[in-house]
């Protein structure tokens, strides 16, 4: 087997991806400003381009990693249950807020892209951009979007919230723990939630509940939308 053939083997793509991820984590631990997802992806793209390996070949292995986003979605039930239990009495209110956020997020993301001339598949890719990656990917597929674009937007929405979220909220005098938590969880999912850990325990608990809840609400709304679209076409 030639070296190039070995590079195309699914086992190699998985192993190489895991190694790049481990190195990226180490770099991130050393220099906090290095985003792990970028540090992990750049060497892979570079190798594929240099060795002229088509993405589809790499992705025969890559797909096996992507598949685990499904069980990861299921795993979100754990923080949702764990944090939901201690927020019991606020839950109906928080759910209302999450619902409003999901409706606003989906319509403004898809609507803005569409009004600015993006093709429908690209606009649909933007629709789930506020929610956690595994759910966003499922929703994008359901709506006929392009999951790769969705992932990029999801990451950027997370970084925006982690970097500027609490400061923007403070300008509008939103400082109370539950309000900050529900806003960051709804707008910036896991990446935003992780940034709250050092600020306040209650904020990060609410945020981690909200990120799971808004993922669920968004996918339910998208399912209804997908049904409607299918119906309208017939």
């Amino acid at each position: 087997m030639s070296v190039l053939a070995a590079l195309r083997h699914p086992v190699f793509s998985i192993a190489f991806t895991v190694v790049c991820y481990a190195v990226a984590l180490a770099l991130h631990r050393r220099w906090r400003w290095v985003p792990p997802i970028v540090a992990a992806s750049v060497p892979i793209v570079t190798l594929l381009l240099a060795a002229r390996i088509p993405y589809a070949d790499y992705n025969r292995g890559g797909n096996l990693l992507t598949w685990w986003l499904g069980p990861a979605t299921v795993a979100l039930a754990v923080p949702m249950y764990r944090n939901g239990r201690r927020l019991k009495r606020s839950l109906p209110r928080l759910l209302l807020v999450v619902f409003a956020g999901a409706v606003v997020g989906m319509t403004t993301a898809g609507g803005t892209a569409w009004l600015l001339g993006a093709p429908i598949a690209v606009a649909m890719s933007a629709v789930p951009k506020s929610v956690t990656t595994p759910i966003a990917v499922e929703v994008a597929r359901e709506l006929g979007g392009i999951p790769q674009i969705t992932v990029a937007l999801v990451i950027l929405a997370g970084v925006l919230g982690a970097t500027f979220g609490p400061a923007i909220l403070a300008i509008f005098r939103v400082r109370e723990d539950r309000s900050v938590g529900v806003a960051i969880g709804s707008a910036s999912h896991g990446i935003g939630t992780a940034s709250l850990v050092r600020r306040s325990e209650l904020q990060s608990a609410v945020s981690s509940w909200a990120m799971a809840a808004s993922g669920v609400v968004t996918s339910l709304l998208a399912a209804a939308l997908a049904l409607l679209l299918r119906h309208a076409k017939l």
């Binding site: 793509s13 991806t17 895991v18 790049c20 991820y21 792990p36 997802i37 992990a40 992806s41 892979i44 793209v45 594929l48 381009l49 993405y55 790499y58 992705n59 292995g61 890559g62 797909n63 990693l65 992507t66 685990w68 986003l69 990861a72 403004t108 993301a109 898809g110 803005t112 892209a113 600015l116 001339g117 993006a118 093709p119 690209v122 606009a123 933007a126 951009k129 990656t133 595994p134 990917v137 392009i146 999951p147 790769q148 674009i149 992932v151 990029a152 937007l153 990451i155 950027l156 929405a157 925006l160 896991g190």
Partner: peptide, 30 residues
């Protein structure tokens, strides 16, 4: 979880044309 969405992120390499053409619409939407 980041490990699990590396392959999709790598997939952006095939979408350069769409991304550059839609860069404004996508950034504004974001």
């Amino acid at each position: 979880m980041v490990l699990l969405f590396v392959p999709l992120t790598v997939g952006l390499m095939d979408l350069g044309r769409v991304l550059s053409r839609q860069a404004f619409a996508l950034s504004a939407s974001l």
